[in-house]
Design a protein around this nucleic acid. Structure first.
Lengths: 210, 210, 210, 210
DNA sequence: GCCTAAACGAGACGGTACGTCGGGTCTTTTA
DNA sequence: TAAAAGACCCGACGTACCGTCTCGTTTAGGC
């Protein structure tokens, strides 16, 4: 997903290299998912992937680089619809995100990076970057709703982003509480309803207080 | 904070034991803060604390136990005032939490447990438990506001908890964005205002839709 | 035989250390004998001896140190009789040496050090030192014969040492020709007869010219 | 000196092949001289010679073959004069040999083969063969002296060879003692004088030089 | 105030993984 | 067509920690 570690982009890459790389990454992700960061061992990757240790080191400088690449390889796309109904679109989006956090490689691999991100700028950026697409999609949808008059004017999209996805991450990784579609639905409603222009028909007067 | 590993609570503990334990824990927390989980090495703890490796193992079964104990030793108390003004109380509370997440041992050590919590039930509980006091205090304050009529009736305290602290954790550990008192203030306002019973004006009738 | 690598001689050595050391050395010598220097691998020694790699490294800084210790551990004693008959004593001595060169660990392990001795002063000394006892014994016996009048006066003991043992080493390690007791006997006779004072028969007059 | 590894002798050899081969061999000898057998690395040879690893492997089956070829490439010729004066001819010859043992590539590279020769018949033969010319020359000169009556009849040329060159090799490679022209002179005198025909007698005047 | 049981430090041990170097095989690109 | 470049798998290197295990040596605390 994210740029591969320093490679002449135009130049032709040896297909053997590419294959080794992908096999190693696959094994790395599996190990991260199954055993966490401490299970991500170059030797384990070598055994599982059938790629020799030396070959792995030829592509990844050390365990941390491999870890990085593994994380960036699971960054995922959460689609955002634009049906005209903001709340339902965002709800669907958040349910999708929650599902990915709880079921896919993404949610399994992501927390292996939280600690390292405290000290490694690169890792921090990588962890952050996995959210870029999602964030952009959400912001775009909010702005579009603002333009359409569905939302009141003057929203703080960044705050809204934190309000919407923050609780999902929090419950998934920190408080480790369940979420589920209904819960997500309630969350989105709680966050957005106060900002939707006179919900029902006439958006006449009496905007909701901020 | 949390119960120490299996110790006859009534019985008198050898002061040497206690001292070794505390020196080891201190060193462990320092190492976690400075180098993260991978810096938490029994040998490093031994060197830094001056406590022999053997002695450490006498008190902590293995590295994970020590990690656990270190995390639980930094759990912190966030005070919650009850001035009658819910929003200002909660804002203050959230600012305090954000500060602890970003400045103290607590915020530094916590993320070392996120990955392990995925696989270790004990660690998961420990990470979760560090939030118990905070959660209880927040819930209590919300209920009190509900009782006082400051909040509308029928609030979902758990949802509100996630809405309030979720974004703080998210920005601190995942998106790694700044927060700051003003931002926290806006967050709390956004979350709570819609639920506050027609603030100033007589709380006549016409509760806000949930 | 030779001094062990830097050890407080008076102080009590951990018996575990001593045992590990000896097991490692035994395995090392076996490997050198069977496969030569390139077979002397720390890992092979670990496997064969049952001593862990780390433990080996605790006692020997690296492969070369172990090699050194192995060589010095096989230095052997060649006994020298003093029956009054120089030629028979020396012949017996040389036959014994030749036998050790061709049959024991000594002769098998020694050549593994020849190449290294070209560059390592320590190894050079070690190789050299394995001959010290032998050389001293031979020189002593020659001097004793000189004192007894069995040999003419003014012998060059060092030259004689080279003349006696040199050919044995040469045929064993360089030309790789057989020797055998009769051959050694002829060598000793050829070297010493010209220097023996008119053997049994009247030592009257006519000493051999030097 | 010795036949190169399997090469149709009549057939025309590709000049590129020959050049690669010779560059590799040169580098190999240099490495052996400078760092000994363990410095003889295919990769080091490739780097130093500018010949690719693949190309080296095309000409030498493996490291041992290259080592073999390197040794055989330094075999040297020691000239033997026949001035009529055996002792002086042999002395000169031995001084020349000693010089080659101590100064040229020959003496530097030879000991890298001693250990391997213990286990590899091919290498043993190679090491042995480096002495063939020398041995033949010496034997021929001795027989010529015998025929001329300079030596007593019935000499054991093989024994004499060992007596003459054995000490030189011994002091060079095993005891690592100095030799030098004077020492060699004394050695040759000690070995040959007793076998030279009645010094005094016939050759009237002109006593044998010391 | 002494003495014994415990806790302690020092450190050896068998292991696992690290990241590096070299071996020997192979494929791909260049001349 | 062969040499050069370099990827590949493999095995050994020497290092860092792991968790276990003697060892002697303090040192509390019950007598």
């Amino acid at each position: 997903m994210v740029a591969s570690t320093v490679l002449p982009p135009t130049e032709h890459e040896d297909p053997r290299r590419a294959k080794s790389r992908s096999r190693a990454l696959t094994a790395a992700v599996e190990l991260l998912r199954e055993e966490g960061l401490q299970g991500l061992t170059i030797e384990a990757v070598a055994v599982r992937s059938g790629v020799a240790k030396t070959t792995i080191y030829r592509q990844f400088e050390n365990r941390d680089e491999l870890h990085l690449a593994a994380i960036s390889s699971v960054a995922c796309h959460v689609p955002m619809a634009d049906s005209g109904d903001l709340i339902s679109d965002v709800t669907e989006f958040c349910i999708g995100l929650d599902h990915k956090l709880r079921n896919g490689d993404f949610g399994a691999v992501l927390p292996t990076g939280f600690d390292g991100a405290e000290r490694s700028e690169t890792l921090a950026r990588m962890v952050h970057d996995t959210g870029l697409q999602r964030r952009a999609a959400l912001l775009e949808r909010l702005r579009s709703a603002e333009r359409d008059g569905e939302l009141i004017a003057g929203i703080d999209a960044d705050l809204l982003n934190s309000q919407l996805v923050g609780p999902l991450f929090y419950r998934r990784f920190i408080s480790r509480q369940p979420a589920g579609p209904e819960w997500v639905e309630r969350l989105v409603a709680a966050v957005l309803t106060p900002l939707v222009r006179s919900s029902s028909a006439v958006p006449v007067r009496g905007g909701r207080p901020r």
